[in-house]
């Protein structure tokens, strides 16, 4: 099949950018989207032009490196799929595709489709951990975790930090990401001692990073390749209130 791509090209973060049109022919339906771009890139290089820069690594939907917008959808049109796992059989001959980087003030463009997502790392650094000195841990089975909690914590921990939730959110909010990280740890008994501190610090950092706020649009959940649930946002809201309540006096609740 033959496709027309409109790809956002931007040489550097500081320079301006524009859409450039490319015709790609003989696209095999079994190719992945990134392989289609690989083929385009080899052609561009051999024509002496700059290839399209895009982030990727594992190409199996787990590292969270890849991601861009295709026709207004984060990670393309299929549910629970990263662009590296998106295959060309979802497109038809003659399709026109607009390919854009994640757009958010917190994610400045570095080049073409590559953006800087360190803001997400900084949210984690603000409290997304359980402080345990190496070697100081008790026997693993000394901490019992109800299976339901362990499973729910896992659901949250499935986040691959790709940033698609921010990209898809009409407010460019990082709530789903932050909620996933907070909930993963807040749900576990090991996470209780630092629970309030973690919640408040991570939320404060999220606000400092110029993300938008959440108006419960739900677009993030639909774009999320790992199906992270909006329930975690509700949980985060509740945990923040809880943290405030406890700080304001009540020692236990």
């Amino acid at each position: 099949m033959n496709l027309t791509l409109h790809v956002w090209r931007q040489a550097q973060g500081t320079s301006g950018g524009e859409f450039v049109r490319y015709a790609v022919n003989d696209v095999n339906p079994d190719m992945s989207f990134l392989e289609m771009l690989d083929v385009l890139n080899v052609r561009l290089i051999e024509e002496g032009k700059d290839p399209v820069a895009f982030d990727h690594d594992c190409r199996e939907g787990i590292c969270g490196t890849c991601g861009f917008m295709i026709n207004g959808h984060a990670h393309g049109p299929t549910a629970r799929t990263t662009v590296c796992q998106l295959h060309m059989r979802h497109y038809d001959d003659g399709d026109e595709l607009w390919i854009e980087p994640w757009r958010a003030t917190a994610f400045p463009v570095i080049r073409d489709l590559i953006v800087d997502r360190e803001a997400l790392d900084r949210i984690v650094a603000a409290g997304g951990y359980i402080s345990v000195r190496t070697g100081a841990a008790p026997d693993a089975n000394a901490i019992l975790v109800p299976k339901e909690n362990a499973d729910l914590a896992f659901d949250a921990a499935a986040c691959i930090q790709c940033g698609a939730c921010v990209a898809a959110c009409p407010n460019a909010s990082a709530m789903l990401f932050t909620a996933a990280y907070v909930s993963h740890l807040n749900l576990l008994p090991q996470g209780q001692p630092e629970r309030d501190r973690r919640t408040q610090h991570m939320v404060a950092q999220m606000d400092d990073e110029h993300f938008g706020h959440c108006t419960n649009h739900g677009a993030c959940e639909n774009a999320c390749p790992k199906g992270i649930s909006l329930d975690f946002i509700a949980m985060l809201n509740r945990d923040l209130m809880r943290a405030r309540r406890r700080r304001q006096g009540a020692l236990v609740d």
Partner: peptide
């Protein structure tokens, strides 16, 4: 020791209904 360390960090290993790993 690795398993102890990971569990204390909150790694959500699979569990049985008893809450054991």
């Amino acid at each position: 020791n690795i398993i102890d360390q990971a569990v204390a960090q909150g790694v959500p290993f699979a569990r049985e209904y008893s809450g054991l790993l």
